[in-house]
Design a protein around this nucleic acid. Sequence first.
DNA 1: ATGCATTTGTTCGTATGTATG
DNA 2: GCATACATACGAACAAATGCA
Lengths: 80, 80
Amino acid sequence: MEIEINIRSKVPSYQQLADQLEAAIAAGEYAPDEAIPSLKQLKDQTGLAQGTVQHAITVLEAKGLVYTVRGRGTFVTPQA
Amino acid sequence: MEIEINIRSKVPSYQQLADQLEAAIAAGEYAPDEAIPSLKQLKDQTGLAQGTVQHAITVLEAKGLVYTVRGRGTFVTPQA
DNA sequence: ATGCATTTGTTCGTATGTATG
DNA sequence: GCATACATACGAACAAATGCA
């Protein structure tokens, strides 16, 4: 997927990333229980720090859109 | 209030802090709409980094126990 | 079982931005 | 303008879990 972070935006970087990942999931770019890109991949693709990427993932977890398994990855939550 | 962080515990520092703040709120140590200690105060009292303290606050916000106003402080959510 | 690479989780210290009073 | 307080972000390091060779 394509991710564009606008540094000068008033919207925080982590929020922009979370929004774009959410849109990608909504668009069906990732199937349920399929992994989204790893922290390292997102870090490299966006140029953000790992902590910032992690923050974005935390937001998505809080919204119940993804779930995470340590050592494995972060996966799209299947529809209930 | 008294806060004790056990560095060697398996429980993360931010979670310990969140737990203790939650207990203090539950115990009525802070009235509804009353401010809890500032980030700097918690940072100084616990020896944790500001980011770690902030993480703890974020957890409490996510649980709806407190709400934050930038430039003012973090306050106990009144019972609905 | 051992080791290694990958991946997520926690924490620090620091810097800077933004809002309030 | 200034002091205080929360918000965002970086880079770095290390811990812990997983899976595979």
